[in-house]
Structures are given as structure tokens and as C-alpha cells.
């Protein structure tokens, strides 16, 4: 019915949405949108290092993201600069470093646009395995740590008293965010990957009463956006990554028109 590349794109987009949906909820709840954007800026350096060391870019991007996230957590403890300013410094410094490394490499320069804006229609079979592998790991971690992650998000001290290993769960949160960014950049590129994470979660909020409902709905909205964006891209011959993000944004705009559900007061 469809060309193979289109089918792979559909599957890849769905896989990425499964990982991005619940993680996006935590990004929204914990106000980590800017943190996510800063992490996405490290993608370029990850890709360049991947080419230099001949490893699959998903792995090198994840590694660089995770290391930067760890550094940010350590730097957060200093009192001198606000986290906000710190993120701005780190993100752009690492992005610039990435650009410089890339400039030395003939092979990558050709694909720069592809990495900035994503190339979902070029997803191969290996990519699909990597995407679904990552989605499985992320979902498993979320499943096992769900209550800990939620308790931590609500109040860190309370969670600590109730036996949540706070530092470990915080690191886990950052790692799965790094993993989602590494996967999402394949779909919509590093400039739009945070949109794929945040917009479905922000849209879902208006229709749910519990965190679990929000995670599920956010995943569904992500999948709907991928389907809508890909078909729009096929129909009108527009770039796929931006079409997906536009579809998600249109869902968000429509959700604003729907009155907020005042959850379960009657029941």
C-alpha cells in the first residue's frame, strides 16, 4: 500500500512517540523545557563524535547528552549562577564546539540540515531497531520507577523521607530524557526534538485528572501528530519533521478552545 520508506517512517515516529509521551509529562511538570532545549543543543557534538569514533549516532548522542546532563546536575549545586543562565552558557558552548568539529568533517557537512531538522523519511531498518529498543528501555524504566519519579516531582524532601533514593532517581530521569532526545532527533531533528517532547504533554493536560492518564494521552497525541504530519508531508510535499511539529501544535491550539475539565469533583 505504502512505499517501504514511508512505512518505516510511520513506525519510527510511533516508536519515538511512545518514549517521548510520558517523559514529556515529566519535562512539563518539572519545568525542564529549557533544560531539554539545552540538552538538544549537544546533539550536534554527539553526532560529530559518533562519526569520528565510527559508532551509531544514537549512542554517541545519548552519551554526550547524558554526560552534559550529569555535569549540569553537579554545576547546579554552585550558588553563583542561576540554573537558567548556566544552561544558556553550556548549551551554546557545546553547540559551537559541535559546529567546529563538524566543519572539519567533509562527510557530515552534507547531512547537517538532516540532523538539524531530522530526516524521518530516511529511517533505515537498523534505526527502527534502535528506536524501538530505546522506547522499550525507557518504558521499562518509567514503569518500574513511576511512583518514585512522581513522588520526587511533587516534593523532594517528602520523597526522601518516604524512602525514595532521590539522587539515583533524578539521574535516571535525566538519562531517559537524554535517550528520548537521541531518538527524537532522528524523527524531527535537534531543533524540533523538544517540541515532540513537550507539545503533546502540554496538550494532554486539559483532558486528564491523574498523572497516569496524562502520560497515556500524551503518547497517543504524539502518535496522532506523527501520522497527521507524515500524511500531510506525503500529500502536499512538505518537509516531514516540521509537518509533525505543526500537527502537534494544531492539536494544542484546538485543545485551548476546549473548556478545562474540572476533574472528578462529583465522584
Amino acid at each position: 500500500m505504502f512505499e517501504d520508506f514511508f512505512l518505516r517512517a510511520l513506525l519510527g515516529g510511533i516508536g519515538a512517540s511512545i518514549a517521548a509521551g510520558p517523559v514529556g509529562c515529566f519535562v512539563v511538570w518539572r519545568r525542564m523545557a529549557y533544560f531539554g532545549t539545552a540538552l538538544a543543543h549537544t546533539v550536534l557534538l554527539g553526532i560529530a563524535l559518533g562519526f569520528l569514533l565510527s559508532v551509531e549516532p544514537i549512542f554517541s548522542v545519548f552519551a554526550v547528552c547524558a554526560i552534559v546532563a550529569g555535569c549540569l546536575v553537579l554545576l547546579e549545586r554552585q550558588q553563583y549562577l542561576s540554573v537558567d543562565a548556566l544552561l544558556g552558557v553550556m548549551a551554546h558552548a557545546i553547540f559551537a564546539a559541535g559546529m567546529i568539529v563538524v566543519a572539519f568533517m567533509e562527510r557530515v557537512r552534507v547531512d547537517l540540515i538532516g540532523y538539524l531538522f531530522g530526516d524521518i523519511l530516511a529511517i533505515g531498518t537498523v534505526d527502527l531497531w534502535l528506536i524501538f529498543g530505546t522506547a522499550t528501555v525507557v518504558t521499562a524504566v518509567l514503569w518500574m520507577q513511576w511512583r518514585n519519579l512522581l513522588a520526587l516531582t511533587i516534593n523532594q524532601d517528602l520523597a526522601a523521607v518516604e524512602g525514595v533514593p532521590v539522587e539515583r532517581v533524578r539521574l535516571l530521569m535525566l538519562f531517559i530524557l537524554a535517550a528520548v532526545i537521541a531518538v527524537g532527533m532522528k524523527i524531527v531533528g535537534m531543533l524540533l526534538v523538544v517540541a515532540l517532547v513537550i507539545i503533546p504533554a502540554a496538550t494532554a493536560r486539559r483532558f486528564v485528572a491523574t498523572p497516569e492518564q496524562m502520560a497515556v494521552l500524551s503518547t497517543l497525541l504524539g502518535i496522532i501528530s506523527v501520522l497527521a504530519g507524515l500524511f500531510a508531508s506525503l500529500r502536499w510535499d512538505i518537509p516531514a519533521g516540521p509537518a509533525i511539529v505543526m500537527a502537534a501544535s494544531i492539536c494544542f491550539a484546538i485543545s485551548l478552545a476546549v473548556p478545562v475539565r474540572s476533574s472528578g469533583n462529583s465522584g
Binding site: V28, W29, R147, L150, A151, T153, I154, N155, D157, L158, V161, E162, R205, V208, A209, T210, P211, Q213, M214, S263, G264
Partner: peptide, 22 residues
């Protein structure tokens, strides 16, 4: 433990029941 300040951000959909079972 009951902490001094638990922010109740409307962005987090959370019922009293879910909060208690956390």
C-alpha cells in the same frame, strides 16, 4: 513528615487520592 511547602501546580493533574498513595 509534612513539609513546609508543597507547591500545587495546576500543570500536574493530581487528585487527593493519588497524592496520598504516592
Amino acid at each position: 513528615y509534612s513539609p513546609q511547602h508543597v507547591p500545587r501546580d495546576p500543570i500536574m493533574p493530581m487528585t487527593v487520592r493519588r497524592f496520598l498513595t504516592l
